[in-house]
Amino acid sequence: MTVERELPSDEAHDLIDLVADIADKELAPRAAGFEEAETFPRELFTLLGEAGLLSLPFAEDIGGGGQPYSVYLQVLEEIAIRWAAVAVGVSVHTLSCHPVVAYGTPAQRRDLLPAMLGGETLGAYCLSEAHAGSDPSALRARATETPEGWRAAGSKSWITHGGWADYYTSFLRTGDDPRGGISCFHVDGRSPGLSAGAPERKMGLRSSATTTMHYDEVPIGADRLIGRPGQGLAIALTALDAGRLGIAAVAVGIAQSALDYAVRYACERETFGTRIVDHQGVGFLLADMAAATEAARATYLTAARRKDAGRDYRKQASIAKLVATDTAMSVTTQAVQVLGGAGYVRDHPVERHMREAKVTQIFEGTNQIQRLVISRHLARTAR
């Protein structure tokens, strides 16, 4: 089923067509096999980078694609419709680029961004720790200043692209102040003392490598501090607002894929001499799934357009993440129900979509955290 998209230009329409073509030819045929084998598709990120799809929301004068965020998110959704793990990887890579783009010095941008935005290097975003998933002010992994720069010690948990990334955007404690004592560093993946733990054995997104990263006195050059010392938490939180929109778009892509498959199945499967789509119980279920998916898409696009207009979008990003990911969980569960017993087996992709949807309610801030963010915004603006 083709999604009817509202796009701002002919260039954006052409971009979406290009993404759909690449995703149909290069991603969709590989997705099921790579997920089953838990194989990370590193070469596909190089392909997407060469096609200009890893730099879309960044300005053209620094090597980006110069696309509005509302267009970039619809690109992510198109990728997620075919392969959610790759779409999550693109979102995480974009997140890892943000600190250098927004806070890097001219020299850092010159030296680092061409490879980051061109797909030559793949990034990871290292914020979470085992004891500090939703509370980054409780970070313990530390960077200590040395005459040559810094030296990092500690561990980071739940790192997408762990063990595969060429660089790790790392948030490390450099002072004792809970919020003002965290700094951001660009850490080369080949650094001595940096190592990846065993891949997590996950419910879904199995082709996406997720590990704990260990920093054993890792040397970091003085020129790889991004922003000011102590500015790291502010950098992390500004990046997460945009990252939540990325996950919202991925979640809508998962829901759309499950919906499309359920509709096709319902139009082909017959019971009592009638297509099951013509039974009201199934037809109305599909209608609810379609309505929820379109509403979730509208929600993330509303937040993205506020971002593109330079307006505060923090509350809307949390709403979009909450709505879209809860929708993905609901729609994929209903898709399994439409297929009945067939939906519970791996012969059909909807069981995979259901497993993939679950984690979208957890990462980039759990949906309980999103409710906390939204309620605090409401309390601040009450009259």
Rank of each mutant, 00 (worst) to 15 (best):
I16E: 00
L53A: 10
V90I: 09
T211E: 12
T302K: 11
P147F: 02
L259G: 06
D61H: 12
D326K: 15
E43M: 10
P68V: 00
A292L: 08
A291M: 12
T105L: 03
V71Q: 00
S330A: 08
E26M: 11
G253C: 07
A132C: 11
R201E: 13
D308L: 00
S9A: 04
P29M: 04
P99H: 04
S330T: 10
G162E: 10
L48G: 08
R264P: 11
A12F: 00
S157G: 04
G189P: 04
L194N: 05
L76N: 09
H13P: 00
A141I: 05
T381I: 04
D223L: 05
T293A: 08
H161A: 14
V323Y: 06
W150E: 09
L18K: 15
P106S: 05
R306V: 08
D24T: 10
A290L: 12
F171A: 05
G193W: 06
V88T: 12
M1L: 11
V250M: 01
L286R: 01
G180I: 09
S330N: 04
G227D: 06
E6L: 08
L117S: 02
H377F: 13
G227Y: 01
F34V: 04
A37Y: 09
A287Q: 12
K315Q: 15
K321H: 06
V71I: 00
D177G: 09
P57G: 08
L339S: 06
R376H: 14
A251H: 01
Y215G: 03
I254V: 14
